[in-house]
Design a protein around this nucleic acid. Structure first.
Lengths: 225, 225
DNA sequence: GTGTTGTAGTTAACAGCGTTACGGGAACGA
DNA sequence: TCGTTCCCGTAACGCTGTTAACTACAACAC
């Protein structure tokens, strides 16, 4: 990568951190910088390999020029590392995509439609992140991501708020279970679309974009005659 | 289990196969019986442990009183073994649950409603089977389950037929993409419900049954006012 | 009865995994 | 200068899926 030093070479004590590597032993307070370097490397590995299996502790360690046990000084667990990597993506998605739509788009229906497309686009962009966050075994999930946390991470609250606005302005029916249930209904369908495409990218079927349109239309206007 | 021999003991050459074990070396043509024994053991392990990780090749081999490499004489791969285990469940579900509903229930709408509930019930009954079949990495999927096969396994064809009947009898709208698209819309929502509950059983939210009702109602009558 | 063949099984081993125990050295405060 | 603290490496454990090489034995032909 860089010309200065061969990055992440096993025995290179060449001095300063390389692009992705750590290089010489970090200073006393530089643990956090190393931690961030590890996060970045894991993120990159996860995106490039598109498989959680390829992101082994040893692979991450190699990528940053450390040894495997050192990772455990910065992260308690492999699942903690991976979830933190994914949480960054989900947080940014909520902050930079969903929240702006909620503010920008006046019409709640149109806002929901835009969010739906953005959500599916986001899920399919880095499928492995989506898989780890929403499709992984609960036993492999760190405690802090259990239950409510994983929902708030997934921009669910923003959607509920928009649904509430739509119900209050008379754009959506009020169903049993309230706006929360409505949000779950919509989210389930979108999650189904993403989860299918993430798990089986080559499965035949309609293009996600067309399916999202159909799902929204069906949920809004109904399929029955 | 049985009183005759200690099942699956490492060195027991005591004679006849035990309940789950193979026991004495099988005859020339008895390879298929051993194969089935392995399938049953893997199925049982998968249901009891509720985790694919617990179903290691060695664990299966131990359960039937064989050594790990022997498994490879009957199955080319771990994924092939697991998928065959799951395919049995899905086939039976289609044959014994979905198909009878399609025949028994005259009203296509009511049939779809019953199928939807049955589908979710089935998925949550043995979650690990559902996870392996529909939520696993495509790279871990044996070739013969790729693409169309996995769809026909999942009772999709039966649903499409019912939707077609509903459209032709004027019970459902004809949407862009035809009955196939309608089936995908409905299936996506159901898959979303099951996939969420399979991955995160403790996640807060409405009970699956209530959610299924809400999803069906929304898709039939629409949420918009 | 005596090979021969093919099947079903074994043992040993490889490469990789997540993870832990332990030790050493550099950087800091005193 | 001493002692503490933080960062990291080496070695190792027990597990995984999988392969190679070999053995035991039932079934067949002669």
């Amino acid at each position: 990568m860089t010309a200065a030093t061969s990055p992440a070479s096993p025995d290179a004590r060449t001095g300063h951190p390389t692009e992705a590597g750590v290089g010489a032993r970090s200073r006393r307070g530089d643990g956090d910088r190393t931690r961030q370097t590890i996060l970045d490397a894991a993120d990159r590995l996860l995106m490039e390999s598109a498989s959680e299996d390829a992101v082994s502790i040893r692979a991450v360690a190699d990528a940053v020029g450390l040894t495997a046990p050192t990772i455990y000084r910065h992260f308690t667990d492999k699942s903690h590392l991976l979830f933190e990597v994914c949480a960054v993506h989900f947080d940014r998605f909520d902050r930079e995509v969903i929240a702006p739509v909620a503010e920008r788009v006046e019409d709640p229906i149109e806002a929901l439609r835009e969010m739906a497309h953005a959500y599916v686009r986001f899920g399919l962009e880095d499928p492995e992140h989506y898989r780890i966050m929403f499709m992984g075994h609960a036993d492999h999930t760190p405690e802090q991501y259990d239950d409510h946390q994983i929902l708030s991470t997934g921009c669910f609250g923003t959607v509920v708020a928009v649904v509430e606005r739509a119900v209050e302005t008379g754009r959506l029916r009020r169903i049993d279970g309230g706006p929360l249930m409505t949000a779950y209904v919509l989210w389930s369908a979108l999650h189904g679309i993403v989860a299918t495409k993430v798990a089986k990218p080559n499965m035949p079927g309609p293009a996600p974009t067309a399916l999202v349109e159909a799902v929204i239309d069906a949920n809004l206007h109904g399929l029955a005659l």
